[in-house]
Design a protein around this nucleic acid. Structure first.
Lengths: 326, 326
DNA sequence: TTGTACGCGTTATCAG
DNA sequence: CTGATAACGCGTACAA
């Protein structure tokens, strides 16, 4: 692989001149410029980005840590992030933590040694020190990491309220909330908005069941619960996938959705439209969240001011069949 | 950020000694070693991977190009790839081409300047020269790129055969194949296996409809076709998502699956279990394909011999409700 | 067992 | 307008 010296030799100029040509910087005679360009073409030369990175002490790489790739929710986010990063001429290093702190630290180490210029983080690790130690701009996405670290999240509290109101309108009296783990801030916020709203209605019974988002046992847990509690007539599920699982279970149990029992999911991923009945859900502006996180990150990188430290984007109720009233 | 010189100064030794310590290479006195380790800890030193890369002329980064992240099929693949890459102490640079040649070239350029050590490629770009120019090991995944470039694919031809046989057994007489675009080798192989098998049965009518895998118009195309062709009693769909769309359309048209019309999908992604009826499909060993591609790539990187240039993994028919016979 | 000095490929400074 | 040269941080002959 040809390097800048080879090009210089080939064009009978100095490396400095070649550098000026490829970076369009400083004065260089039109004729010698063409000579250099020809040499570059002849030798099939591409600049070595690693050497550049070494000099400028910045890799032009943005690190992304997300819990899981096999999740449409995070995929949409990444799509948003990636686009903005590409626009800014940066590259992406994408890593999945699988909610494992150890794995996350491993990647943080890699990021550190590779001198990434910024980090977008979907994590609920309590180990904030590791992030600070990196000494680079960080933006939290979906989950708030700490009060000091900028973040982009959806209005999860409002999501809980919207879901509660829909079930109230649908006249549900015995409601179960299938909520995500306490370690995740979005799950807590949603639950709080949900319970606060229902608290005002003394004629409504509410229970909460805490579940892992991904685990396989979840499925049987749900089935068992629904079997044991036939009086339930409304479900607020922490994710659309769980809602889809509920529909499957209820079908087996011979209960009709939405006639006997209403269900409302969360995220508005595509599965909502493929189940029977289709799933009503709370939609988050997922792609926009990703974009905004990336844009915020670049502001930090370029030392531009950001309007607010913690940005909260609006959510929306998407009405489908699973909450139809009659 | 402390560098190796700072550490050396702090420990009162030379940089060479520090280097020996961090790399566990060459002789170094136990006592001085501890001095160095203490200095490293004190200064919070991490080696600069960029400088290392520059020296060794290798970044320890593997590039991955896939068409689409919002696709469970590719996500499963990536999960397989990522694990193997991590085991080998390499990093991942993941890029989505969105089936756009231009975008792919852009990324190839980035890969080239960043001196990646290997490339895993899900692409059907005809521009093989660009790949060869990179002058690094390449493995094709899912799709065969060229006869010379090693590849890992599933047995798409057999997938077509299995699907055809199932529809024959189910006594379908009027079959439509919703096939993927001609530009994609897997789509062609499946179609060939499918049609070859059906050709032996003169009492069966077969049509083919070529569709984009992702496009939004696909949905209406399918609906229109099914409306115009009520005699159809069997569908072989190029993807599970399309199969799910078919079920949705047929429901609207008042046709019963599987009683009036059988459907068989492809890929075995999770949606198959959430539709009503659930979708019979051809399963590919997706994660294994990713793992095998990565392992093959490392063999190439380490100049180890590979058993065969083109590896084909077996597929399997997964029987669910959408093809039930009575 | 340790240290010196050079090279990896690039950019920027400064002198011409 | 151009060229020589010193960084950037690390690894390794080679010398001591």
């Amino acid at each position: 692989m040809a390097n800048i010296k080879d090009v210089a030799r080939h064009a009978n100029v100095s490396v400095a001149t070649v550098s000026r040509v490829i970076n369009n910087k400083g004065y260089v005679n039109e004729h010698t410029k063409e000579l250099v360009l020809k040499a570059i073409k002849d030798l099939n030369y591409v600049p070595n980005e690693i050497a550049r990175s070494l000099y400028r002490k910045s890799s032009k790489i943005i690190g992304i840590i997300i819990p899981d790739l096999k999740n449409e929710f995070f995929n949409d986010m990444i799509a948003g992030i990636e686009q903005v990063i590409l626009q800014h001429g940066y590259k992406t290093m994408l890593c999945t933590s699988r909610e494992s702190l150890e794995r996350e630290k491993e990647y943080l180490q890699i990021f550190s040694t590779n001198k990434i210029d910024g980090l977008i983080l979907c994590s609920n690790s309590p180990d904030i020190a590791s992030y600070i130690n990196l000494d680079i701009p960080i933006v939290g996405l979906d989950r708030m990491i700490s009060t000091e670290i900028p973040s982009v999240t959806a209005d999860n509290y409002m999501g809980g309220i919207l879901a509660a109101n829909r079930l109230i309108e649908a006249n549900c009296k015995n409601i179960i909330q299938l909520r995500g783990p306490h370690t995740l801030t979005p799950a807590n916020d949603r639950s709080e908005g949900f319970l606060q709203t229902l608290k005002k209605h003394s004629d409504i019974q509410v229970q909460s069941l805490e579940l892992e988002f991904t685990s396989d046992t979840t499925q049987t847990d749900i089935q068992e619960f629904l079997k044991q509690n036939p009086e339930i007539d409304g479900i607020f599920s922490a994710s659309d996938l769980m809602a889809a699982n509920c529909i499957r279970c209820l079908k087996k149990l011979g209960r009709r959705v939405p006639e006997d029992i209403k269900i409302i999911g969360y995220d508005n991923i595509s599965i909502c439209e493929y189940t029977d009945p289709t799933i009503s859900t709370i939609a988050q502006p997922i792609t926009e969240m990703g974009e905004m996180a990336a844009e915020t990150l670049f502001k930090l990188i370029n030392n531009e001011p950001i309007n607010q430290l913690h940005m909260t984007l609006p959510v929306e109720l998407i009405e489908r069949e699973s909450t139809k009233s009659e």
